[in-house]
């Protein structure tokens, strides 16, 4: 069964086209990721789904039906940038927001679920970034939503706080929630999402399960090594004319299906192999191969 269906969504701000004909479907219980760089149109898309913004054309169906007033009772929302009512503690924020809905999770349960015990009675203005994101997630969940929409829930957090939030989202997934999240962190999408779409310049450029997408677009492994006087782009390109060689900052990247031949060729040419690193391609590599640019540029 479909939880959400987005059909031919278009939205412009003046002359700038933010979303150009985006369509996708999300099944009940799925964790769906909208990926793309800043300004790709992810937030606009998610805000249209949340009915915060109006599309110029296209439709959104929730459980097969067009949106109604009652829909707001069924969705939980975490905005990328948001403010809470001033001078309330974390617990009071939860009480206020859950008080606005007819169906609600008891506040103590929410506090436990999102691990807010430590700072529940602190003013929300005094919380750290990670604590605030957890509070916002708890608020988004307070009405037992059928669809949870998270717009860049971990942006700006330190690695530990991100992992913490991932754990909570993973628990929600296990409990069967339908989740839509936007992110520009590829590792986040790989860790959390069952299915993703990659958006760039307001258009979908790839769609599928993260591993399948990588396997179909990037069957190679990736060899990385630091650039130096003896390891130059021209030298490596001459040595390996049939492989894809990229320069990313101070590193050289070779995508290949024949790892042993590449290593032998480098070694035969007396290129030092210190710092050589072989890995499986990830979504970041997929994005680079699809768009020719790094995701967080």
């Amino acid at each position: 069964m479909l939880a959400l269906e987005v059909k031919n969504l278009i939205k412009s701000y003046g002359d700038v086209a933010a979303v150009k004909n985006i369509s996708f479907q999300i099944r009940v219980g799925e964790c769906f990721g909208l990926l793309g760089p800043n300004g790709a149109g992810k937030s606009t898309t998610i805000e249209i789904i949340e009915q915060i913004q109006k599309q110029d054309s296209g439709q959104v169906f929730y459980f097969g039906k067009p949106p109604t007033e009652a829909l707001r009772e069924q969705i939980g929302v975490q905005f990328q940038e948001t403010a809470l009512l001033p001078r309330l503690t974390a617990r009071e924020c939860l009480e206020v927001f859950s008080g606005l809905y007819s169906e609600r999770i008891p506040v103590p349960e929410l506090i436990k679920l999102c691990q807010l015990e430590e700072f529940a009675d602190r003013y929300h203005e005094k919380l750290s970034g990670g604590q605030k994101q957890r509070l916002l997630l708890a608020i988004a969940m307070s009405n037992r939503p059928k669809i949870l929409l998270l717009d860049e829930p971990t942006t700006g957090l330190d690695p530990q706080a991100r992992r913490h939030l991932w754990d909570i989202i993973t628990n929600l997934k296990t409990a069967g929630a339908t989740i839509i999240l936007t992110t520009h962190y590829m590792d986040e999408a790989e860790a959390l999402c069952d299915r993703i779409v990659i958006v760039d310049h307001g258009e979908i450029i790839a769609e599928g399960e993260p591993r399948n997408l990588i396997r179909s677009h990037l069957p190679e492994v990736i060899v990385e090594m630091p650039l130096s006087e003896r390891v130059t782009s021209d030298r490596v390109k001459n040595l390996l004319p049939n492989e894809r060689v990229l320069i990313l900052g101070q590193r050289l990247q070779i995508s290949t299906k024949k790892l042993d031949q590449v290593v032998r060729a480098l070694s035969d040419a007396h290129i030092p192999l210190d710092g050589l690193h072989v890995r499986q391609p990830n979504l970041e590599d997929l994005f680079i191969s699809l768009t020719g640019k790094a995701l967080r540029s």
Binding site: Q51, I52, E73, F79, E81, A83, L84, F97, L100
Partner: peptide
Amino acid sequence: IGVLKRLKASPV
């Protein structure tokens, strides 16, 4: 500051 945007997403 965005408080009203957050409320807009609720049934208020």
